[in-house]
Simulated assay, not measured.
Amino acid sequence: MIVFTLIMLYPLAWMVGSSLKESSSVFIDAHKIIPDVFRFENYIEGWKGFGGITFSTFFMNSFVIVIISTIGSVLSSTFIAFGFARINFVGKKLWFVCMMLTMMLPYEMVMIPQYIMFNGFGWIDTYLPLILPTFFGAPFFIFLIMQFIRTIPTELDQAAKIDGCGTFGIFFRIICPLVVPAMMTAAIFSFYWRWDDFMGPLLYLTTPAKYPVSLALKLFSDPNSVTNWGAMFAMSTISLIPIFIIFFIFQRYIVDGISTSGLKS
């Protein structure tokens, strides 16, 4: 495990080390993780951004996209999962199969139809194509939360009905508090995936001031000029900080959400 851990951590260590090197020596001394001279100016230069747009703007854009889309994805997926797990309706199995089939579609297959549709809506160069679809549920999260809900005894629902709870009351008062671990797991995965998303912003955003961090990092690489590799790796290193913070704060929910039942002793 130690050997595999070192292998997986090597690219991360190399990136951090490269963020402190002279741009011209990043690939010349690629075999060295620890630079001969530490150049902390890379972080200052990188944070200045491009065309008067600093990386504080790019980070703010990322947080807006990630936080809103994560909230929408988790809430809508939980609501849909409750419907599949607890409510009987016509065509339930058919709709569930259709939902599962969407997990098998590669993004490249739906990329062009989605772009044509969003372009027809006039949503290009806005955050709507990146945020609004998340409010209609994510198949993986729906399946994860639905399996979690199925571990909760239906006797709790029946007891709530006797006390006068309706369907929405059962959902908000009984189900939601018990599926918090699964919801947090979905939130963590959603945060990771949205933060790292590059293709979506590349397709739909055309104004640099609206770029998230994942797309702004691409601006460092310019075929027509000298690329400031040190500054690029410096901003790449900083972009990992929110990911590490989220993981270390909420890592226990990943295990709880996947391996535990819906009840706690």
Rank of each mutant, 00 (worst) to 15 (best):
M146T: 00
L240P: 04
P208H: 12
W14H: 12
M103G: 02
L128T: 03
M235N: 12
S77V: 01
D125I: 09
V97M: 11
M199C: 06
I145R: 00
L105W: 06
Q114A: 01
F171G: 01
P212L: 12
Y127C: 04
V16P: 03
M60K: 13
P177H: 11
Q251Y: 10
F118Q: 07
Y10L: 07
S214L: 09
F140R: 07
T78E: 06
S23M: 07
G52S: 14
Q251N: 14
T126H: 11
A85L: 05
T54A: 14
T57P: 10
I145C: 00
Q251C: 09
I243K: 12
L9D: 09
F38V: 09
D36G: 13
L202R: 03
P35L: 08
F168S: 02
D29M: 01
P11G: 10
I33G: 15
L20K: 10
G91Q: 08
W229D: 03
L263C: 06
F220M: 06
Y211L: 09
M109S: 14
G83I: 00
Y10E: 05
I131W: 07
P181Q: 14
F50R: 05
I68Q: 11
A231P: 01
I258K: 15
P139D: 02
S73Y: 04
L156C: 00
E108Q: 14
C98P: 00
Q158D: 13
T151M: 08
G166V: 06
T167L: 11
I145G: 00
L9Q: 08
F189K: 12
F135I: 00
F148V: 00
Q158N: 12
V64G: 07
P177Q: 09
I162D: 03
L132Q: 01
T54Y: 11
G49A: 13
Y10W: 01
K93Y: 02
G122R: 13
F38K: 04
V90P: 00
L205N: 15
F79A: 01
G49T: 06
S24A: 12
M1D: 14
F121K: 12
A209I: 10
M60L: 14
F63L: 15
M235F: 07
R252F: 06
P242T: 12
I2D: 06
F244D: 05
A85P: 10
G230V: 09
P201T: 10
I124T: 10
L20R: 07
V37Y: 03
E155F: 01
W229N: 03
I65N: 11
I241F: 06
T206Y: 13
R173A: 14
F4T: 13
W47T: 01
G49I: 06
S236H: 09
F250Y: 15
T227C: 11
I243N: 05
Y107H: 04
I258L: 15
L215Y: 10
S261H: 11
I170G: 03
T78S: 15
Y211G: 06
G122K: 12
W95D: 02
K48N: 14
I44S: 04
F82M: 02
S76P: 04
E155G: 01
